[in-house]
Design a protein around this nucleic acid. Sequence first.
RNA 1: GUCCCCAUCGUCUAGAGGCCUAGGACAUCAGCCUUUCACGCUGAAGACACGGGUUCGAUUCCCGUUGGGGACGCCA
Length: 466
Amino acid sequence: MTVVTRFAPSPTGFLHIGGARTALFNWLFARHHGGRFVLRIEDTDRARSTPEAVAAILDGLAWLGLDWEGEPVYQFARAARHAEAALSLLEKGLAYRCYCSPEELTAMREELKAKGLPPRYDGRWRDRDPSEAPEGVAPVIRLKAPQSGETVIDDLVQGSVTVANSQLDDMILLRADGTPTYMLSVVVDDHDMGITHVIRGDDHLTNAFRQTQLYRALGWETPRFAHIPLIHGPDGAKLSKRHGALGAEAYRDMGFLPEALRNYLTRLGWGHGDAEIFSSEQAAEWFTLEGVGRSPARFDMQKLTALNGHYLRTAEPARLVEAIVPRLEALLEAPLDADARARLTAGMPGLQERAKTLVDLAESAAFYVRPLPLPFEPKAKTAVSGDAGALLGALATELATLEPWTRESLEAFARAQAEARGLKLGQVAQPLRAALTGSTVSPPLFEIMEILGRAESLARLAALPA
RNA sequence: GUCCCCAUCGUCUAGAGGCCUAGGACAUCAGCCUUUCACGCUGAAGACACGGGUUCGAUUCCCGUUGGGGACGCCA
């Protein structure tokens, strides 16, 4: 049997990080088994679903590199099929019409709650004769769920979980307006799409019981369930927008690489021995549901950042240049010319070694492409003032005729100058660094000078702040 | 409130009864490297929530307590 997994987001917002991980686990599981990973857009809530949200989710998945097979299934388009399933249940006496108004149900819940009882539908229309139906009220269709016994799900992550059927009420299948509810749609779609493994957030665990009842009523075999633990914020509470329940594109904008986020998310709630850094191909080879933990995990920006630093250091320089050019152009409010790009390309190895995110990378690369005069950080300004100013003037004179202009000879020059003046190398190098970059932090000085070239270096030495 | 789930360093985790003097990673601290910052390297500190069982022996199995989380919609 071919494994078929799915990711089924509702398009009411962006692809948040928890959803991204759910998609990732489904993708990994399918790949591990040589199966298929498909997408279904759960857009049956017409009031809240938007095409923008669909686009955001698809973009997020694409950016993360989670490719799905075929075209996404739009759930709303299958409403007629869902209704047909509910009607078939009605015919078989496995479902019934309920004429309660929403107000009546709210009152029922509040009354039960006040008594300290669980807020459930009491089944008042379950066995009532349809002839008692009130005039002008459109009924909903409810499943005639078993009232005794228990429902057990054999979850691939959580193990065997049992709930008493008395805890579950008769769920609504079809709304008064004839549209299907989520419970019905999910079951029908998962069945029709041939989904073999439903891997989703733990918050759906209780839904699995109701869905199991529905599968039984419909006479269908249930898929295997795997409810993965939720991701929490740094404070252990449910992940909110304040923490990191941001869209995937927010992580992209913060300068994270998709492979870093994939690696991090894979490791969150899943482990394979001591493995920490691995490709997605490797992860797919290793990925099993047995490796998924059962407790919720907190989202840790620092670890993601550290991982991102690793992937940044090992990335292709050319790719990183392309990634930061738009950021730099936005920063400088001007397009970069070929000369600027050449400097970035030459300087990238030294730059990427030091960056943690693409945002850092762009910031630290900016000095290579800024027009003069350079903006100076306070510390850098201090570093080129006073005695250092005179020193830089003297060095500039010597530098004008230094041959050759290579990092090796520049270093030899700086060492010789330092020795001749009774200074430490750092006392010569720091003022130069500050003068050439406007900062006290940069890639190796002589590498910078070589890349900048003699003319630019001298121009910078001549354009120091007052 | 009812039901369900969870529980190893600050965080993510390894651990499937003796291999545990509980391992790794991030973060933290100290040092080395060094023209700055990173990287890298070395070292330090740091956890089995608690209480009962079961067993010759429990981090590992069972029960309870406590703590955390989730679900209880004509939302998905």
